[in-house]
Design a protein around this nucleic acid. Structure first.
Length: 331
DNA sequence: GAGGGGAGCGCG
DNA sequence: AAAGCGCGCTCCCCTC
């Protein structure tokens, strides 16, 4: 079946061509050309032109009042979408390097939105999955498919991961089926088993919807609101989109609140002046620093402590830290 | 030549 | 008919 865009043209979007590429040469070549053209036009050609003549560095601008959920956004250039997922793309990331005798440090929150869902829903099974497992997707798979942690197959883990992410976004059985390549019926059954295992999550979703319906807004753990004017729309498509936003915004927004609190705490600490380090970037669940080799151990400990202490949830906050001479190495 | 919208795609 | 949240940038086409 030929996929169409909303204006009626046949879609040549990446997922459509990726499927066609399994059987045909041409879509494969088109996708390869597109991805390389994207890297060249957006990053390789442009970033060198943005280097400031005085500092020799690229200076992005962070917008604080743009994203509806309370995230920051980055422009001129956007440094929150530097490639990382492919080997070719990572070569762009490798071009971001520290000064001589300095290192880059990247500190990432691990699964922060899912941890927030566990806290907000207070579901006992999900809380336990986080307190007991290194790998929450594996733990979810063991629960949903009724097997031991070390018996989880790769496919079961992939399915569980798709569910965990899908829930955060308000995904339907149809969306999950597309994502993991099973029938809509099978996807529906998998979701059903999930909610049997984690009933508190379903209750939380239902209560969030009801609250959005009643008050016309949802809010983060810290009380910042997102109003949803379309929550009562007559147009079902608009209404359903608003309902998905109602599900997602408290989790994405709470994550944004938490990292902002951490950033303020860390900057106040750095301002004391005892550590040779600077906070350079924020990428939603990640902070990037430049630090002298001498002060690296101090920065690792201080950043991790302040990030995990930025909110007291009923699951631990976990931060992964990497370092290197370039931004790719630091991951 | 400027500005807007659609399509597509980079990231979390 | 659509079906998964939040962004910003490039290319292309169109209008003024």
């Amino acid at each position: 079946m030929l996929k169409k865009t909303k204006t009626g043209q046949p879609s040549t979007a990446e997922p459509v061509l990726a499927e066609l590429a399994q059987d045909y040469e041409l879509p494969r070549v088109i996708l390869e050309q597109r991805s390389l053209a994207k890297l060249k036009s957006t990053y390789t050609d442009k970033l060198p032109l943005q280097v400031n003549a005085n500092t020799g560095r690229i200076h992005s601008t962070f917008q604080q009042a743009v994203a509806a959920t309370g995230r920051l956004s980055s422009t001129d250039p956007n440094l929150q979408n530097i490639p990382i997922r492919t080997a070719e793309g990572r070569r762009v990331r490798q071009a971001f390097v520290s000064a001589p005798d300095m290192l880059l440090l990247a500190a990432d929150y691990s699964q922060v939105e899912l941890r927030i869902m566990a806290h907000l829903s207070q579901d006992p099974g999900l809380l336990k999955a986080f307190s007991s497992a290194q790998d929450v997707h594996r733990a979810t798979a063991a629960d949903v498919f009724g097997v031991a942690l070390d018996e989880v197959t790769g496919e079961q883990r992939r399915s569980a991961k798709a569910i965990n992410f899908g829930l955060i976004y308000g995904m339907s059985a149809f969306g999950l089926a597309n994502q993991i390549g099973v029938s809509r019926g099978e996807a529906g059954e998998t979701i059903e088993r999930y909610f049997e295992k984690y009933p508190g999550v379903r209750t939380y979703m239902d209560e969030t919807q009801a609250l959005a319906d009643e008050k016309g807004y949802v809010e983060t753990l810290f009380g910042r609101r997102l109003y949803l004017p379309d929550i009562h729309a007559g147009n079902g498509m608009l209404r359903k989109a608003a309902q998905r936003t109602a599900i997602n915004a408290p989790m994405q927004g709470t994550a944004a609140d938490i990292i902002k609190r951490a950033m303020i705490d860390i900057q106040n600490w750095l301002n004391e002046g005892s550590i040779d380090a600077r906070m350079l970037l924020q990428v939603h669940d990640e902070l990037v620093f430049e630090v002298s080799e001498r002060d690296l151990p101090l920065l690792v400990d201080g950043v991790r402590f302040r990030m995990v202490s930025a909110a007291a949830l009923d699951v631990p906050l976990v931060v992964d830290i990497g370092t290197g001479k370039n931004w790719d190495e630091a991951h």
